[in-house]
Amino acid sequence: MTQIAINTTQNVNINFEAASVGERILGYLIDFIIKIAYSVAILLLLFNVFEFDDTIRDWDYWSTFSIIAIILSPAIFYTVTLESLLNGQTIGKRIMKTQVVKIDGYQASLPDFITRWFFFILDFYTFSGVIGIICIVSTKKSQRLGDIAAGTSVISIKNKVNISHTILENLEEAYLPTYPNVIKLSDNDARIIKDTFIRARDSKDYATLIKLRQKIVEVVEVKEQIQSNDVEFISVILKDYNYYTQNM
């Protein structure tokens, strides 16, 4: 698979494995099925159960179109909304273990997701998706037109990337990361966190562990914390950093 080298804002080079065309298509199909299922279900409910067709019978075309568009807006804006809320993932991407990331090391933002969503029409609804597929397989960082415009790409978080030198600790082969935003840390940040963590853990300095966790959450911008225990949380952060990072 294609390797994508990303230089983070802390000048740390990280190699990610680009999602394959097959993974991206399957993720899209899962999302497409979800959107179609919602659209069919809501329209059947409105027209068959609530007899909505009687309500709009005397409306003009644009009024009818506007109401239908509002009703179907969750399906229309499904991708851009979920990618914004789930840090570059939709349900399909989560199932396929892929994620949208910025190739300049910064975190992808709402304008980036909107740009990708807007260009999707050109990428996959023109010539039956040929343009998008050709771009993905021919560009150096596996980008479709929307990715090029937004400065993003789609990576696979399913397989362990090659790490030439582990600066923190060894990981199990099947290890999967939890917090992709650890790429915001530098090597020096990770070493300081590890040293402080080990000293505080061994001496049972819970106050320091709490402060350390709060600082990590602030810097890494963790939106959802899966681990409630401070030791477990910091340990996962260190493992995730080890997963993503290699010395160049």
Rank of each mutant, 00 (worst) to 15 (best):
R24G: 03
I183F: 14
A200N: 03
K158N: 11
V12K: 04
T245P: 01
I70L: 04
K194R: 08
D147N: 10
N181F: 12
E23R: 11
N7A: 11
I163Q: 07
V40H: 09
T81Q: 03
Q89T: 05
K93S: 03
R24P: 06
K211Y: 07
K160D: 00
I193D: 15
K97A: 12
L45W: 05
K215M: 11
K215H: 11
I33M: 12
I34C: 10
L145S: 14
D53G: 10
F124V: 08
G88I: 05
Y38M: 05
A5K: 13
V219I: 15
L45H: 03
F233S: 02
S39V: 07
G105E: 00
N7G: 08
L43I: 10
I210L: 15
Y38A: 06
L145M: 15
T79E: 11
Y61C: 04
E23K: 13
I157A: 06
Y106H: 13
I30Y: 09
G92I: 01
I70N: 00
D104Y: 06
A190F: 06
T152G: 05
L86Y: 12
D187N: 15
I25H: 03
D123E: 02
I91R: 02
S73Y: 02
V130Q: 04
E51P: 01
N188A: 12
V154D: 05
G22R: 12
I226E: 14
